[in-house]
Design a protein around this nucleic acid. Structure first.
Lengths: 204, 204
DNA sequence: AAATTTGTTAACCAAATGGTTAAACTGTTT
DNA sequence: AAACAGTTTAACCATTTGGTTAACAAATTT
């Protein structure tokens, strides 16, 4: 029943749609609930966005456009692998604490609809691993880090940072911790995850 | 349109429901599709399982009862942390390759419905971290492994093993790999992930 | 200020969907 | 073979849901 006010209608709709789609997913979301949350008539949703599908895509693109720069940060800058990992881990976890539903939303909908993947890959600003892979190979051959492929290292970084949020309910249940303890664990991970990765790959 | 035959009706329904719920989720699943896939009348679903919700819960419990023993394996046996990690990583990845929809299904539905978490925690056979935590503390104080909390280590193990499957479409898109390459990466992870973790925590 | 375009609403619609019912069919017991 | 219990089906029902329409209101243009 949270209403959002004092914005132009189109934006109000998008904000409301974001909330509903990101918590309930495409299939679980209801156009009426979005309209109510935006404080307008259901017909307006169609007036501005034509269909549920198109409104959903607007929300999805918007969400991904928040996430992509976070990934590009680690992939495209010029610092060492170690620095990249430290920066990314800390920044990414801070970012997700502010947008807790985002990674799960993206992963869930990407799993549901394979076509989205293709659409996304075509769009500009889509993260590209090439530079990162080259850099990993270089540091490996220089003996700075232990042998590992760029893909596997990237997957590990992503996994350690993203999974605790995507799997929050599972993690909370298994570790048997309260919401406060969980948040503390995530806070600790801002530095712990980077150390964990660097300990593993750095040559002594 | 895949039909499943030659089993008693109740089991046929469960098998069909598993397929539909695990790929489409609770909200996306249709009772008619389950009935078609089971090759029976829609009314039979209600005859045997009363409601969509109860059919779903049967599927969910069934799914979780496959996953739980995998987790208990690492938590409750008596080998060293290092051996546990090696065994779990290899076994778990093999397991998931056979049940690719399972982890995503569980995580998605746990996110959707917080009540499930409570129900699950109450059921027997639910994984418990206590023994693992104690063991980690012991090996840390003996200097076998570097300082880390049992919770964080467990989250890391889970993340590195589970995430690549939950986030498969995202991983494939970002790493820009084909299905075959993806499968090869996962195959490699059976040993790579364990090495990655052990490199990180083992004292030299 | 008349005309036109843009924004907004209430009422409505058709399709989909979870669920029900009453009758029929099947196999077992008496 | 009659009675009975369990199983299965076709037809039906009420509600929900995405989407449309026609009329109305508010700006904007002429």
């Amino acid at each position: 029943m949270t209403k959002i006010k004092d914005k132009n209608t189109e934006e109000q709709i998008l904000t409301a749609a974001k909330e509903v789609f990101q918590t309930k997913g495409m299939d679980g979301a209801r156009m009426q609930e979005i309209a109510d949350k935006a404080g307008i008539n259901k017909a307006m949703l169609h007036y501005y966005y034509r269909s549920k599908q198109m409104l959903f895509e607007a929300v999805f693109k918007n969400a991904f456009s928040l996430l992509a720069p976070q990934l590009n940060a680690i992939l495209n800058d010029d610092s060492t692998i170690e620095d990249k990992i430290r920066n990314f881990t800390s920044n990414y976890i801070s970012f997700i604490i502010k947008h807790p539903y985002l990674p799960n939303f993206i992963i869930q909908e990407l799993n549901r609809n394979q076509d989205f993947v293709l659409k996304l890959k075509g769009s500009k600003g889509f993260p590209n691993l090439e530079k990162f892979k080259k850099q990993v190979d270089e540091e490996v051959s220089k003996g700075i880090i232990k042998p590992i492929s760029g893909e596997q290292l990237f997957i590990n970084i992503l996994a350690l940072n993203v999974f605790p949020f995507v799997g929050k309910p599972l993690v909370m249940a298994l570790a048997n911790v309260s919401n406060e303890t969980y948040q503390q664990l995530m806070e600790d991970r801002k530095t712990q995850v980077a150390n964990f990765i660097i300990n593993s790959i750095k040559h002594i």
